[in-house]
Amino acid sequence: MSLADPLVATRPRPTAWRSLGGSLFFHGLLVVLACWVVLRTPNLPPAAKEFVAHAVAGGRSGVPASVHPVQRKPKVALPAKRLVSKSASATLVLPPMKLMMPEAGLAGLSAGQGKGGFGRGQGAFGGNGLGAGLGNRAGFVGRPVMGAFIRAQRVAVYLDCSGSMRSYLPRVEAEIRREFPDADVFRFDGARVVGLDDVVVFGRRFHGNAPRLREGPTQTALETLTPNGRSVQAKVRTACEKGSLGAWMDRLLAESYDALVVFSDFQDGVRLYETKKGEPKMVYSDSSYHKVGGVQKGHTRWQREWLEAFAKAPSGAGPRLYLFTVQKVPQAFLQACVAASGGASTSVSWLKKGGRKASP
């Protein structure tokens, strides 16, 4: 080409792109063939190995043991058999079977302690083992008292020693001590349950001026109390002489008793006061002597606390409540406490006639 000839631009041939496309096509074809080969090859399960057991004879140290291969025989499935009789009068007699005893008793209805066990074993090659076991279980036993079952071990009893109740007290205490000789029996006047605002009058959290209430000295016989009962009596005496049953229940909920038992005619009832202009004013009473306010709507704080405390009784964290009445059905709130604790409310009106209630 001479210098006078014009310059003409030329495009290079796309040889590189063609090579790349050919390479991709070739490798893709190889991948497809490999997948086809893998998927077409069946997966055969591994061959089951035949179980061979070896019997070893010997046992003395220093003597070589002889080994004999033993082949296990395959199990043969036996056809199921059943007895069939076409006779309408045919009978089937089975051999006697041993009765199965339950491992654990019902909570609250059984108590006891399991026996210990002992075992020993020794192997042929010098090994030996030794083991011992001891088990126990305990629960509250239900004991019949005047027509009710009291499930407890530590029992505290409140006897209403007002004038109308005194003639029954010796027999009631004897009935209770016949089943619970270590029960702590407290005697206070009446069966009043009095609340002021959010606390029980003369209860654990009570401070301030109380409503005017009837008071009576205790008639508790200290010589009949356990050491713990005498300690409790010293703590609650003054409060219960003024606050009656309400103060007693509120304070004994904090003690370690499994059951609280109350005997009364339940005529005093539940009375609620509210502080208005610095003075307590009665807003509710279901007493037989003076009713105020009709049906109570809702519960005060101390009533909710009682219900929560008694609701812990089924799990062993609180006492059960048992009420015995010779006249009036216990008040609705006390009945609610009984239901929450799993206790019982029982009429003993037969005491008036000098009779005796049959054991449940």
Rank of each mutant, 00 (worst) to 15 (best):
T15H: 08
R171E: 04
G190P: 02
E179A: 09
A358N: 10
A104S: 09
G22P: 08
V262Y: 03
T346C: 00
P181I: 14
L307Y: 07
L7Y: 07
V84A: 03
W17T: 09
L130M: 14
L134S: 11
F266I: 10
S19H: 15
A4Q: 12
S110M: 11
L106S: 10
V141D: 01
A88R: 14
A152T: 13
S164K: 02
A332Q: 15
L334H: 02
R166T: 12
A340W: 02
F140I: 02
Q303C: 06
G246P: 09
S87F: 13
A16F: 13
E173Q: 10
S341L: 04
L196W: 09
A77P: 04
A191L: 06
G342Y: 00
T325G: 04
G246L: 01
L30E: 08
L159W: 00
V38F: 15
R177K: 14
R205F: 01
L39Q: 10
T41S: 06
K81F: 11
M165H: 03
L130P: 08
Y168R: 01
K86T: 10
T10H: 12
P280E: 07
V348E: 06
E215S: 08
D5A: 07
R72G: 08
R171C: 02
A138P: 01
G203W: 01
R72P: 09
G22K: 06
L92C: 13
